[in-house]
Computed example of a mutant assay.
Amino acid sequence: MNRMMITSTNTLTQLQKQMDTISNNMANVGTTGYKRREATFTDLLYQQFNNQPNENNEVNRLTPNGIRQGVGAKLGQAQLVMSQGAIKTTDRPLDVAFTKENQLFKVLVQNDNENNVYYTRDGALYLSPVSEDEVMLVTGEGHPVLDEDNNPITITGDTKEYSIDANGRLTASKVDGSTETFNLGVIQINKPQFLEQKGGNLFELPTNFAELGVNEEVVFTELNGGLRNQVGLQQGALEQSNVDLSKEMTELINVQRSYQFQSRSVTLADQMMGLVNGIR
């Protein structure tokens, strides 16, 4: 296999990964609180040929000396873009939208009989019955929403009204005039690139996080106590996906053109090898 084929096939596999990233963004354009990813490329190793033994002959050259021959490109990073999505008013009491970037709810997700803390921007909250006079606050997928102490939020008694203030305090007003208050568990992400997407709008720290030698305090900050005033929430609204469909379509067309170009290079290399082998 000649060098042209190696370069093209290496790049083709990476372009396919970029196409998968764009397709995932487009598939979640209507997912509440979804954050898009943006793929960036870097060069693979290249080989330099110093074809000019006398550097004095290259004095007025404007480009670097020698000839560099690469072996393709690779997907360097699928960067998570945490920009604010559009706010859609719903007037539903249990719908809340973050008005500040990099803030996430804490939710409890069960995987393989293990309970793990995940993070989400999805503010479409619901009530799930636990017993005859007790309900639990959950997401649309049924994951329990956690308070600032990482405990599921359960509300007892007959409740007539719910309110959530801008600092994430949930107040349940009962029929008998009493109230119950809870502080929703909210974190501020400092380094969003550490987060792994777990489908849709759920995020989690990587499974090998303990091996990375990084403290959780570096990656995110718990907005508890005196930091509650930094929380930004709007009741009766939902944050939409930050995916720009027209931009993603344009990027997809560019990737398809690059894919066609690399495929054509493989075809030309094959034809050239056929001509060489056919020489008698």
Rank of each mutant, 00 (worst) to 15 (best):
K174N: 03
D149R: 15
P144V: 02
A78I: 05
N50I: 13
L104M: 09
N116G: 11
Q110D: 07
A124I: 01
I164T: 08
N60Y: 15
I155E: 05
E58A: 12
D149Y: 15
S163T: 11
Q84N: 06
N111S: 15
G140C: 01
V145H: 08
S83V: 05
K100R: 13
Q69F: 14
V117Q: 09
N102G: 01
T156P: 07
N111W: 08
N54D: 12
E114N: 12
L80S: 02
Q103E: 03
S178W: 10
V71A: 15
L80Y: 04
I67Y: 07
D149Q: 14
S128I: 11
N151I: 00
G66S: 14
V175C: 03
S163F: 06
P93C: 08
V138K: 07
V130A: 12
N56P: 00
D158K: 15
L127K: 05
D158V: 11
L125W: 06
N111G: 05
Q79F: 00
L94K: 01
D176E: 01
E101N: 06
S173N: 10
E161A: 14
L108Q: 11
L94I: 10
R169D: 07
G177M: 10
D133T: 06
Q77A: 15
A73D: 10
G85R: 03
Y118W: 14
Q77C: 00
L146W: 09
N150R: 13
P129T: 08
G66D: 13
L104K: 06
V59I: 09
G142V: 11
S131I: 13
E58M: 15
N60K: 07
Q84Y: 02
A97M: 03
T90Q: 03
Q77G: 01
Q52I: 13
